[in-house]
Nucleic acid binder design. Structure first.
Lengths: 144, 144
DNA sequence: CCCGGAATATTAGCCAGACTAAGTTAGTTG
DNA sequence: CAACTAACTTAGTCTGGCTAATATTCCGGG
């Protein structure tokens, strides 16, 4: 298959669709949405600026503004200011936000670990070997 | 790593996030949304009923109704009836819908193939081996 | 010093896509 | 045949994405 990129791409495409459905099914009814969870995750290691967050999550600034508004209203994050530049707003986790992040992460990891436990040792080896490759996919596609 | 499912789950989780971002970036500004594309794909081999489509895409019936409304308005699908049961509505591709499906598929496959071409032969082998494993992930998790 | 352009966010208004609740129409069954 | 069930649709709400327009603030050149 490696010598027929198109055929391989078709297989990859099918698998991606499967993974998307998996994620959709598994994230229904969670205490935070997957987007909110992702944003909270970005704040784990300290305050970030709005532009950073937007770029990191591949959304426009206004979208991130709205998401942060909701998280702030929910008490999970707090806005701050950069003393060196009055234009930038910083965002950081509140204690409750950190708790929520960790709780959701535990739940998600446990669910995934459960799925992985259903595999054989060999399958897990194969998958583990492929993870770095998947992480590399599309890394430097500059043209949209 | 295979012996520490939790650690592996964390790695898988990171890779999934990366793939989701990849998909988001690559599907911006396409002629049909990824959802619409997925629904069109379900119709490739003949008419389907609304309930089938909803279940296959892991959404509720009203959601599918709205999506089919839009596709119908765009002229990409047509609604029909089941002669044996007047309650069910069938949905099938129009000629234009089929054309659009194939065009979008070609574009997506080409993009993916391009990403794959950036990998080494060894990396493609590793990835190819992992595809069936990924497809198996979460296959029989009955409890939500 | 200040004026104009660039950078950072927010607001407003739009659309897609998800949900639940409620309504309609058509089969099915006691 | 009356009541229940099944298959959809409609209506209303929410999240999450976009663009355009609007503050604010910073910075550089005259």
């Amino acid at each position: 298959m490696r010598d027929d990129p198109t055929q391989m791409a078709e297989q990859v495409s099918k698998v991606l669709r499967h993974l998307v459905l998996l994620l959709r099914r598994s994230s229904a009814g969670q205490p935070v949405t997957t987007q909110q969870y992702a944003v909270l995750g970005s704040l784990e290691h300290g305050p970030r600026r709005m532009t950073e967050l937007a770029e990191e999550h591949a959304v426009q600034l206004p979208t991130m503004t709205v998401q942060i508004n909701r998280l702030e209203y929910a008490g999970l994050v707090a806005r701050g200011s950069d003393p060196a530049d009055a234009r930038v707003r910083t965002v950081e986790l509140t204690g409750e936000g950190r708790d929520r992040l960790h709780a959701v992460r535990r739940a998600r990891i446990a669910r995934l670990a459960q799925d992985l436990a259903a595999l054989t040792d060999d399958e897990r080896d194969v998958l583990a070997a492929a993870l770095p490759v998947l992480a590399k996919l599309g890394i430097d596609r500059t043209t949209q």
